[in-house]
């Protein structure tokens, strides 16, 4: 069954930049898909469209056959609630405790009045602590989020997303801010939790080896288009070389432009 579907999605930013051109991708229940591509390929834009944070200029995104763009109010919030998000820069409340950051994921279904004074049900608190323990942060529950290391912070963000009890987990370059050794550990944790929870996941990654390590399917993107969409075994080095071809040159050109400006 298709959990996530993008059909001919085109996205143009207000300044005219066309970030996505007729992108079509389908993700089946239980699949773990990696989206690969050089910087500027449109991965983050696709992530925002999948998450319902941006509305496609043309085409449609459906999560479990529902188009988020057509929803309002409570329905929209509950649809968002079924999608867990992990961001490159964690997006935590640094001054709040680790536990309170994870409980944010429970707010959508909590009592709207008592939750305002940070009173959360025992079930919610138990779930939050259990998730934190499973990502190895059982000892850090009461610590301030900004006292943790980068890898630990991303695990808090993961626990927050999982506390939503989502159907789908989307991550945008979740380990790009971490050094390679930590990155592998965090990605492995994400994938382990996704499997244990039986979720569907789409991970935007920059690193080919990480994508090959964890994904069942790889979607290659470049300049806003899908270049290939194949099971991981069929993604050859030649395809990847093409995907990243001239990335160095492009980067250099961009740098020259910056210097000239």
């Amino acid at each position: 069954m298709t959990v996530l579907e993008a059909a001919d999605v085109t996205f143009r930013y207000p300044d005219g930049t066309q970030a996505l051109t007729e992108v079509s991708v389908g993700v089946q229940r239980g699949e773990i898909v990696a989206v690969l591509g050089p910087s500027g390929a449109g991965k983050s834009t696709l992530f925002k469209c999948f998450a319902g944070l941006e509305r496609p200029t043309a085409g449609v995104v459906r999560v479990e056959d529902v188009d988020l763009a057509g929803l309002r109010g409570r329905e929209r919030r509950l649809a968002h609630h079924r999608i867990g998000l992990v961001f490159q820069e964690f997006h935590l409340v640094g001054r709040a405790s680790v536990l309170s950051n994870v409980l944010v994921g429970r707010l959508a279904t909590a009592n709207p009045v008592t939750s305002l004074v940070h009173w959360m049900s025992r079930r919610d608190r138990t779930l939050a602590v259990e998730l934190l323990t499973r990502v190895g942060l059982g000892e850090q529950v009461r610590k301030r989020a900004d006292s943790l290391s980068g890898g630990q912070r991303q695990r808090v963000a993961l626990a927050r997303a999982l506390s939503q009890r989502p159907e789908l987990l989307l991550a945008d370059e979740p380990v790009a801010n971490l050094d390679p050794v930590l990155a592998t550990g965090v990605i492995d944790d994400i994938v382990r939790m996704v499997r244990e929870e039986g979720l569907t996941a789409v991970l935007n990654l920059h690193d080919v080896s990480l994508a090959r390590r964890v994904a069942q399917r790889i979607v290659g993107m470049r300049e806003g288009r899908v270049v290939f969409d194949l099971p991981v075994g069929e993604v050859t080095d030649a395809l990847l070389a093409d995907l990243y071809a001239n990335e160095g040159l492009a980067a250099q050109a961009a740098e020259r432009e910056e210097v000239a400006a």
């Binding site: 998450a51 319902g52 944070l53 919030r77 509950l78 649809a79 968002h80 609630h81 999608i83 867990g84 998000l85 961001f87 820069e89 997006h91 935590l92 409340v93 640094g94 944010v104 994921g105 707010l107 959508a108 279904t109 709207p112 963000a157 927050r160 997303a161 939503q164």
Partner: peptide, 12 residues
């Protein structure tokens, strides 16, 4: 950023 992330969880 954290505000937007919380909005994306469906929090009011």
């Amino acid at each position: 950023r954290a505000w937007d992330a919380a909005a994306a969880t469906g929090a009011r």
